[in-house]
Write a protein that binds this DNA or RNA. Structure first.
Lengths: 205, 205
DNA sequence: ATCAAGTCTGTAACTTGTTCTAGATTAGCG
DNA sequence: CGCTAATCTAGAACAAGTTACAGACTTGAT
């Protein structure tokens, strides 16, 4: 893996790197209006100034493309968060604050969020490596917020559950079945698991 | 809503009810082999002995069809569970046991599970009512297991988070990114929230 | 039993993701 | 530079979800 979290397969030439970037930009742009369905492969190709076949060489399916788009956006988020880490005392609160900040970022581009999250959860086994990368990024963000450098297995379980809740809550919000307030409550609720698994409390007397 | 949890719009004639049943059966059958992609609308129509246009009159999209299929299966599960309720003392354990039982049922037909769960999380706003019905069914199953007849808002939040975890954990399992053991751990972890929100402990001294 | 309204059938057409192909361009190398 | 393999382009073709439509069949009311 290189620094960007992509498999470090054959290194790309400059023009190829530029093409890849144009494609991801076009993808995010189109997703930003119309959401998942507005990201049409022919349109992405045209907007990126690339032939359809080339688009498919870079991203073997629409889902791959959108998951890569999500990777890209998460990277931004992660560096932004590192600059202004959450302030609260309690680890659980810090994680909740971090996720709510991410949530507010998504609210600014709900259509983009729709495209990315739907792709992420719809992905089948052929996209597992890429989805896994997104998952690891998310885990890193949460562990950062917790301030847990050497998490216990128990803490990792809690983080996994928090991620589950995060994704699923996003989906219910995106499909209009849950309000923003409800997502907030769900996040805060699940973050309580962190206190429950803090090593100071349960392991070291 | 009628007893089956579907909107009680125009009552169906006997032949229509039979058609609907044939369609759902064909859907489950095809999903049972090949999963999501094997449920092809033309094939469902043919297997159900129904014209394509008729299939679309009954279920306005493939997603609607698969979500309805899930409703159907959940109904079965619910009645099965009611007959043999979980035995454990602790509400959290009962819920975990119930979900693990459901999980084992899904493991017997992983392809069917794939089709149903992928459809459920991919569904957009146009399927919200149907997805919501599935969600209410799931909630009912969990509350049954908890034995909470008059759940507090806090308990409902916990149940919501458990549902989130349940769906998302299923997805990671289906896409091969988590083992069965890990799903078990995630379920057990999130079920700890139930103890945390039990009214006996936090509200009535 | 008859009629009007609503359903169902069979089939073609349309849309968008995906694959394929033949020829042009580019990259890396001697 | 000149060659070769890889890559890119343009466009056709294919697959599956969805829509449209004309004609046959059911249903329910009279």
């Amino acid at each position: 893996m290189n620094a960007e979290g992509r498999p470090a397969s054959p290194p790309l030439t400059e023009r190829q790197e530029a093409r890849r970037r144009r494609i991801l930009h076009a993808s995010a742009q189109l997703a930003g209006r119309g959401g998942f369905e507005a990201v049409q492969m022919r349109e992405v190709a045209e907007a990126a100034g690339v032939a359809l076949g080339t688009l498919y060489r870079y991203f073997p399916s629409k889902i791959h493309l959108l998951v890569a788009t999500m990777q890209d956006q998460l990277q931004h988020l992660h560096t932004t968060l590192r600059k202004r880490p959450p302030a609260a005392e309690d680890p659980a609160e810090r994680v909740a604050e971090t996720l709510m900040r991410a949530f507010r970022a998504l609210q600014r581009e709900p259509q983009l969020a729709d495209a990315m999250v739907r792709a992420l959860t719809f992905a089948d086994r052929s996209v597992s490596p890429e989805v896994d990368t997104v998952s690891r990024l998310t885990t890193a963000i949460i562990l950062d917020a917790m301030g847990a450098e050497h998490p216990t297995p128990e803490q990792l379980s809690a983080v996994r559950v928090i991620e589950h809740t995060w994704h699923s809550a996003l989906i219910t919000w995106l499909s209009g079945r849950a309000s923003i307030a409800q997502v907030k409550i769900d996040i805060e609720t699940v973050c309580r698991l962190i206190d429950l698994t803090a090593p100071e409390v349960t392991a070291t007397p």
